[in-house]
Design a protein around this nucleic acid. Sequence first.
DNA 1: TTTGGCTGGTTGCGCAAGCAAGCTTTCGGT
DNA 2: ACCGAAAGCTTGCTTGCGCAACCAGCCAAA
Lengths: 158, 158
Amino acid sequence: MGELSALDLDEAAFWRPLMRIMTALPRALEDQFLPETGLAITDYGVLVALSEAPDHLLRISGLAATTGLSLSRISRVVDDLTRRGLVEKRRCAEDGRASNAVLTEAGLARLEAAYPSHLARVRAAVFDHLSAEDIRTAGPVLARLATALDTAPPTDDC
Amino acid sequence: MGELSALDLDEAAFWRPLMRIMTALPRALEDQFLPETGLAITDYGVLVALSEAPDHLLRISGLAATTGLSLSRISRVVDDLTRRGLVEKRRCAEDGRASNAVLTEAGLARLEAAYPSHLARVRAAVFDHLSAEDIRTAGPVLARLATALDTAPPTDDC
DNA sequence: TTTGGCTGGTTGCGCAAGCAAGCTTTCGGT
DNA sequence: ACCGAAAGCTTGCTTGCGCAACCAGCCAAA
């Protein structure tokens, strides 16, 4: 290390905005969302993940993977959602160590009720400011970056 | 609200990766950076902001604005950096309420020492996975999004 | 000049999140 | 059949962060 060249102009013009977005977007999304729906984005993410899973059922660890949260966090979030009746936790039949989280009726209803608000926030924060062209050209780049981040967490240094 | 159409395919292909990036990138950057340099990215951001300011001097509130952190957080971070000798806090002469944070020699040295590590992390996490073309086409889109987020925080609903 | 409002910053507190250590169940090897 | 290692959570503790309440210095306007 130490022999790397600094960012060039194009890179800087990519990097700076990306940093701003990383810090500002989450707040822009969450701020109105929680009061409007009674769900934290984290909760919402968990419910979405379950709603997209076969039988609305997912292992705790699978939930952690798809939401990108730590196992410990997911454990507590699922407990909380269970307490609120939006999710049910069942010990897995074929593996006594594992648990499955299942979306309840109430959970699905809550998710559906929250969806418009989420959509509105996303549109207001992101898509209202971009052209169709923007979205089409930048989308694939973001996709490459995202998959790289997903697959490269084990240090690919050296 | 409630009358919004769902995301179309292009939008979804933009939004999903963006969410992944928002959650995964910060960790990818911070994980090695702190052990390598003894600086949290937040600390690093503050030092960078100061280093780019005239006379290496910035109001506390200015620091909050440029870093995108809350005033309270900045207040504590600056206190901490002061305790570590990387920054100096001076009560402002022409306004007794205000404080200025100034980068010390040690702070500048620390920043310069940390820079290669930061660069390496950014390259490994981001630019190593993107082509020059990617960067050139997506950069402006990210820039639009970032300025929109910076200027639109007061709810532009209704 | 005094008083009420403002602005810049600090502090008390609570919450989300991760890490590390623990517990239980499973599985592979002998 | 047994034992050690590993998998799948859970729980205790720490940290980063923001909000809201607060305090001090500034600035009108009466």
